[in-house]
Structures are given as C-alpha cells and as structure tokens.
Nucleic acid binder design. Structure first.
Ligand SMILES: [Mn+2]
Ligand SMILES: [Mn+2]
Ligand SMILES: [Zn+2]
Ligand SMILES: [Zn+2]
Lengths: 145, 145
DNA sequence: ATGATAATTGATAATAATTTTCATTTAACC
DNA sequence: GGTTAAATGAAAATTATTATCAATTATCAT
C-alpha cells in the first residue's frame, strides 16, 4: 500500500525536498483511484493548498513519473493523465470510456512477444504501452437504458 | 499497396469531396513511412500547396482516422502523430526512440487476453492500444559510438 | 457545358495545454 | 538560528487544437 508518508520518504531519499505543496499532491494521488489530469489534480490539491500554482503540479508530476511512482495514461486525447502505481511492477490498464474508472491488469505476458519481435526486427526493444478501452459494469447498465 | 488514387476513391465513396488540398495530403501520407505530426504533415504538404491552411490538415486527418485509413500513434508526448495504415487489419507498432522509424507488428495475440480480462473484470472491452519502444539497428550503432 | 448547392477552405480568433523565466520563499543541513 | 541550494508561483511565452464565418469550389443534375 502506497501512502503519502512512503512517497515522501522516497522523494527525500532521492534528494527532493518535501514541501507542503508536494505533501498535498502526494495525499491526493494516494487517495484517488481514478486517473487525474494535471488540471484535475490541481483542482483537488487547491482545497488543501489554496495558493498552490499549477506549475508546481506539473513539476511534481514530472518528478513522480521519473521515479516510476505514477504512470501516464494514454486514453485521453487532449491532455495526459496520471495514476498512482499501486502494483510496483510493470502493469497495464483497462479504462472505462464512460466514467474513467481504471482497473489494473497485473499480469503482462508481453515480454516473450517483445523478445520475439526484437529477434525478428532487429530492434532493441526497451518498453511498451498497453491499454484497454471499454465500459465498466455500471456504465454498461447506463448504456442499456 | 495504398495509393493516393485509392484513398481518393475511398473518400469519394464516403461522400467526401476530393480537393487539391486533400490530394496533396493523401500523396504525402502514402509516400511517407514515418509517422507524422499534424505540423510535420503541414510542412510537407505546403511544398505542393503553399497556401494550404493548417486547419485543413487537422480536418483531413480527422476524416482519415475516422475511416480507419491512418492510425494515431501514442509515442510522442506533446502532440499526436499519424501513419498510413498499410496492413488493413488491426495491428501495432514498434517505434524507434532515436529516429522515429516505425515498424508494424502484424500479429496481435491480445484478443484472447482481452476476452479473459473481460470475464475477470466485468468490463466490456472494445479495444486496446499497444506500442513498443526501443532502438532500431541503425540507431543502436549510433548509440554505441 | 452550366448552374445550383452543399461541402470545403483558410484567415482569424478562441481555447487549452504545457513550458520558461525570474524574483521570492523555504526545507534541509550544519 | 543561519546558510544555501532547491522549490515556488506570478506571469508570460510557447504550442497544440478547435471554432467561426465569409469566400471558394467539387460534385451532380440538368
Ligand atoms: Mn496502473
Ligand atoms: Mn501501423
Ligand atoms: Zn464506467
Ligand atoms: Zn532508429
């Protein structure tokens, strides 16, 4: 379980200062299960830190992503969105096109395929993104009406 | 093999007019193997149609994507980029982080996984994106130096 | 071929997302 | 508590994308 506290410790360990603004961001990130756009994160963090700047959100997101603590989602077209990595290992997502709910796909069987492709194509493959789209149970019901 | 001519015919069949601007766009799209951002496409099309507007590029891209003739790539962070669909079936990409070269991955074994996930999660899954990143042969050599 | 018509175009503006700059503040360390 | 380098935020700059609307034009039916 990733807590605000743990994330703060990780940041400090990497030489980053732990400021009230960052703490507020970490809090929201650990509490929220949906993926958040920078703007949405900003909005929520403002409740705890009304004077925080949007730039700080962007900068903190960048750090968290570099440390592999959050992952970028590729579902939304106009802006990126981010999500706390709950499973620390490599994994993927199913995103609901209706409500935005995100479910982790913990087993990833793509390493074999990746190796095979590397052989076939000569590429040195060092990563991939995989995301599924669809409708969650709830949104399926809503659609049916 | 997708030619400018064929694409034009498809557009007409769908009720779209084939204008000189669109023809120029189709020409570049069929000739180019790399993925292109709207801005890059604009730049190239301008050589044939100097007075074309960037808006026309965006609008034409939208049509081509809706018809499934080009596919959106998710590799680049700041802007989308697009690529002519050479294989008409569902497929994926390996993108070189060095030079942008894109190789198609024609076999997609994710349908089974997708079904299994649908059962496990209750989601009605209707699609996925999968893209690999790495370095092509040439860029591996350059890196080594 | 010609003309009617609805689609397309592009100049422009509006909107939205992201990054840069820089003076001020502050967390971490001693 | 004082020092210092990192972090902050106001503001502007940059970039990507979409909307508006008057002028143009491809297509189709004469
Ligand atoms: Mn996840
Ligand atoms: Mn492809
Ligand atoms: Zn849903
Ligand atoms: Zn390359």
């Amino acid at each position: 379980m990733m807590t605000e506290r743990k994330l703060a410790t990780l940041l400090r360990r990497e030489g980053y200062k732990v400021t009230p603004q960052r703490r507020a961001i970490l809090k929201i990130v650990t509490e929220t299960h949906d993926h958040l756009t920078p703007a949405a994160l900003y909005e929520r963090v403002q409740k705890a830190q009304p004077h925080i700047g949007l730039v700080t959100i962007y900068r903190t997101i960048q750090i968290l992503e570099q440390l592999g603590l959050i992952c970028e989602m590729h579902a939304e077209r106009t802006s990126r969105s981010y999500l706390l990595k709950r499973a620390s290992e490599h994994h993927h997502h199913i995103v609901c096109s209706g409500c935005g709910t995100v479910t982790d796909v913990t087993h990833c069987e793509l390493e074999k395929l990746q190796e095979q492709l590397a052989k076939e194509t000569g590429f040195e493959i060092d990563g991939h993104i995989l995301e599924f789209f669809g409708y969650c149970r709830q949104c399926q019901r809503l659609k049916a009406e």
